[in-house]
Design a protein around this nucleic acid. Structure first.
Lengths: 340, 340
DNA sequence: TTGTACGCGTTATCAC
DNA sequence: GTGATAACGCGTACAA
């Protein structure tokens, strides 16, 4: 088969007996063109199967059509949701999506990102949590003239550079819900130290407890790292402690599943013996037994919004997505506390 | 902050009082250079913070440094594993990874891919199942001079264009294992019609049954679509049937989790009441209760191998990854059949 | 070992 | 409306 895309704008110009610029105008749908010329040129383009070379365009325009997501996040569902959202955002445009993982704990993280930026020069990047809270990385992007948007649970930057979810309020709602159905001994499994989202979710928990006049005792709080295993560990610690909680808010779904497993190991039935609320609303959460009550986190929407912010011109502010609020999804992992 | 990467090779040449070509040689580490000149030029590069423009390079070299994964696969864990493998394969190179989803059921799938190829002109693409079995799509890539590698369960193309896993043998092993521990009424939950992997896994099942002199009766086979929900449906159908299986091989983990849920709904304990074997060995499979016995599918290795095939020159054949065989991971979802 | 001149395929300028 | 001509920034023959 003859290889496509081997003809250039010059070939078209020659065959159509017009100038390169005219062909360029046809391609870019310039309005200053006689209908006759346009049709003629389009016919030639069609005939020889010409397609513009994106690399040459990128050079001439001094920009390419690539946006990248830079992350240090091992959670598969989260990553795919983000990619889905960004792809929705750039759908119908010329943009494509690149993915670049980095190592948060590496001392060379800045160099990793630098290298990536230099090698690919994406038009824009979206920074995912937890590395999105690193100001130095954002500045690094800026120093290359690369547009960036940061996804986080707190406003860390100017609005044009941020897509923010409010984690605190929905967690407050979730914990309040536990309190409403009668729980008093409500534990918290935290996210990793240093993660903004972890701090926000903890704040929501503490606030809800305080608002209800419930004291948060030290044994009620277990550390976690957003992984399944850490959820199991935290769950076991909670269940093996002197005092047992009757309910627990777990800072993400994956850990919540871990807590469920821990409960099973101790022969505790959920939700009778322990009510659980998670955070994220990953597909997983409805695939376990019992289905997990959790906070829906609008990752896809956030990612779409981020993409739109990146590709929209400086003037045209994208319509603010108003549905970026999280909400409590009530399923089967919560009931009132056991009588006693 | 002054913006990086705004200086060009000409600036360096002028300041260093050498020619562009000499600078180019320094960048590309040509050996034909006096050490003195090299150091001098490198100093200037350092001073003005010059970094080569990748778009210009791409134009001059007539190739960019992007490889893309094209897929129509909704499974998050699978996608992320593939991305991980590819990224491992291109680590240390100049390549970056793009992601392009397409709609398998859309009549315009060829156009979608065409548009993507024209817009981005990746150096190479890896085609994931199930669309990897579409010869027309592979030819499409070839017609643009884009290198491609197809991931599948069967050799569909020449070795340079294929990364293949053998699904049949490990499924045979898995079902044989069920037979060994005493099961006779072993059901199969199939993958979607038309998927090569589904057919291969079914073949492995049937062969194992035949080898053991066990007959596969019609009620033993339930359709599925690789989704959790279809697993629940298939599981219920199996359990509500006239005859109940004592074990079931489920063609992927997600459906296997669905079958587990179905069993719970019917009050059947796993593995006592029903032994289950899955396929994939996703992290999920060890996060459920009981932990799922399953077939480990070396997706990451396959993807890495695919990337290496793409970026290696026509001469240098990459070392064949020998560890691309799947293997049975025994966990807790299988015991012998109940006595009777 | 280094430099000159030109090509890569497109867009932008500015005159016609 | 249209067309020469010059960027855009880097790589490569070929010459020196």
């Amino acid at each position: 088969m003859t290889q496509r895309g081997n003809s250039t704008i010059n070939d078209v110009a020659r065959l159509a007996k017009v100038s390169k610029k005219t062909v360029s105008r046809v391609i870019n749908k310039s309005s200053l063109l006689s209908e006759k010329t346009r049709q003629h040129v389009e016919k030639v383009i069609e005939e020889i199967g010409y397609v513009p070379n994106p690399q040459a365009r990128a050079l001439a325009l001094r920009r390419n059509f690539v946006i990248a997501v830079i992350h240090d996040n091992p959670n598969a569902q989260f990553l795919v949701s983000v990619q889905k959202g960004i792809l929705e955002g750039i759908k119908g445009t010329e943009f494509g999506l690149m993915v670049q993982p980095v190592d948060r704990n590496s001392p060379t993280i800045e160099k990793e990102i630098k290298d990536f930026l230099e090698r690919q020069r994406p038009y824009g990047v979206v920074l995912l949590p937890p590395i999105s809270d690193n100001d130095a990385l954002a500045e690094l992007c800026a120093s290359y003239g690369t547009r960036y948007v940061r996804m986080a649970s707190v406003e860390l930057d100017t609005p044009e550079h941020m897509v923010t979810s409010n984690d605190r309020a929905p967690v407050h709602e979730a914990v309040s819900y536990l309190i409403e159905v009668g729980h008093k001994k409500i534990a918290l499994v935290e996210g990793p130290k240093g993660f903004i989202s972890a701090a926000e979710r903890r704040a929501g928990y503490e606030q809800a407890m305080a608002d209800a006049g419930l004291e948060v005792e030290p044994w009620m709080i277990e550390p976690g790292s957003y992984t399944f295993e850490s959820g199991v560990t935290a769950g076991l610690a909670l269940l093996d402690g002197k005092t047992r909680p009757t309910a627990v808010f777990v800072s993400n779904d994956e850990m919540a599943i871990g807590v469920m497993i821990a409960a099973r190991r101790r022969g505790i039935e959920i939700p009778r013996g322990l009510s659980i609320v998670g955070f994220d609303d990953t597909p997983l959460s409805s695939h376990v037994w019992p289905a997990l009550t959790t906070v829906h986190w609008p990752i896809v929407d956030m990612a779409r919004s981020a993409a739109l912010k990146l590709i929209s011109g400086p003037g045209e502010i994208p319509i603010e997505e108003t549905s970026l609020s999280s909400s409590l999804i009530k399923r089967d992992s919560v009931v009132g506390p056991p009588e006693n």
